[in-house]
């Protein structure tokens, strides 16, 4: 042996986990949902997704290389995930320039201006989505109908989302029973046969992704389950009080991005709390805000706003909600 002995502090072994592997697993977990959206929205879904991913990676490279003058870290895969999630949160008939502007906002403003990966307070994809929603309200809320417009991109036939139908109907004073025939059945909702953002529609595909993320230990159950449980319980109570004035809890869970929000958006590492207690509070907060916005707010859909608002509370949760230390309980009692 001629090489020098290496001396390093313990531990001398490593799990082999890396940022790029985690991101790769998230991408894999998003694939079932992507496949479903290709099936329902076809060409439009393909164009928007590719465009979004490519422009996110491209902007990240440009900003790191020429603006910040650091070694680009696009190989860590975080820009790919942002691009995918951004695409999944917009309608499949969104004009290309809006997608590019959205990507630029996600990477340039929401991520890089805060210091890049690990330092951004708000989920980049969601921040960009909200930015686009406010800047291009018409294009962002014209939802192509599934299957019918498979071979079309911007000229797709559009219709409202189930949540919008319910919201409009209830506003007019109709009862849920009266609206019932206009909205898809629960099974259809579960399978994703509805208008909506291209990746948010199919609950079953997103749940497959959830199982994969849990199996690969990329995320823990705390955030998704607490969001879903909170929405279920809250809307359930409202529904029990007045079944004619409120949609049922299953309907709420299966529509309008609850699944993608709970599984993929709220669990974003950088913008979620660091320990289980905080995660559960974070999840409950998102759940409550979502229902409040949906039922009493102006928008039919509230997950994006709820997550962004709770993102703002993450530093506070990290600071004041501490994990239970080993040996702490005993000290207090003894």
């Amino acid at each position: 042996m001629d090489s020098k002995l290496v001396v390093s502090p313990s531990p001398h072994v490593h799990s082999g986990e890396s940022t790029s592997r985690l991101m790769f697993n998230v991408v894999l977990a998003l694939m079932p949902a992507f496949a479903v959206s290709l099936y329902y929205f076809g060409l439009g879904a393909l164009i928007v997704t590719l465009l979004s991913v490519l422009s996110c990676v491209f902007f990240e490279y440009l900003i790191q290389k020429f603006l910040l003058k650091v070694t680009p870290t696009i190989s860590d895969g975080s820009a790919i995930v942002t691009g995918l999630l951004l695409a999944f949160n917009v309608p499949s008939n969104l004009p290309w320039y809006i997608v590019v502007v959205g990507s630029l906002f996600a990477i340039g403003v929401a991520k890089m201006s805060f210091g890049g990966l690990g330092s951004n307070p708000f989920n980049p994809a969601l921040a960009a989505r909200v930015f686009m929603l406010i800047s291009f309200p018409v294009q962002m809320t014209s939802w192509p109908l599934p299957i019918e417009s498979r071979l079309k991109y911007v000229d797709a036939i559009t219709g409202p989302t189930p949540l919008a139908i319910v919201k409009e109907g209830l506003k007019k004073g109709d009862t849920v029973t009266q609206i019932a025939d206009q909205i898809p059945t629960h099974m259809q909702l579960f399978m994703g046969v509805m208008g909506g953002s291209l990746g948010e529609i199919a609950a079953f595909a997103l749940l497959i992704g959830f199982v994969w993320l849990l199996y690969k230990k990329v995320i823990t159950w705390h955030i998704p389950i607490s969001i879903i449980a909170t929405i279920f319980v809250f809307t359930g109570i409202l529904w029990l009080i007045n079944p004619e004035g409120n949609a049922d809890p299953i309907f709420h869970l299966l529509t309008g991005g609850v699944m993608i929000g709970a599984i993929f958006m709220a669990t974003d590492y950088v913008t979620s709390p660091m320990h289980p207690k905080g995660m559960v509070i974070f999840g409950i907060g998102i759940g409550l805000l979502t229902v409040i916005i949906r039922v009493w707010g102006a928008y039919p859909e509230g997950v994006s706003f709820a997550i962004l608002i709770m993102n703002a509370f993450v530093p506070l949760l990290n600071r004041y909600v501490k994990p239970k230390r080993f040996g702490e309980e005993v000290k207090r009692n003894g």
Partner: peptide, 29 residues
């Protein structure tokens, strides 16, 4: 340890994945 396992891999930035918090047996951060 063989040479391939002797050295640490390059550091990157903290992505706040919380794996260290989950792994700590003493409940530290």
């Amino acid at each position: 340890f063989p040479a391939a396992e002797s050295k640490r891999k390059a550091e990157s930035v903290c992505i706040r994945c919380a794996k260290c918090v989950t792994a700590c047996p003493m409940g530290l951060e």
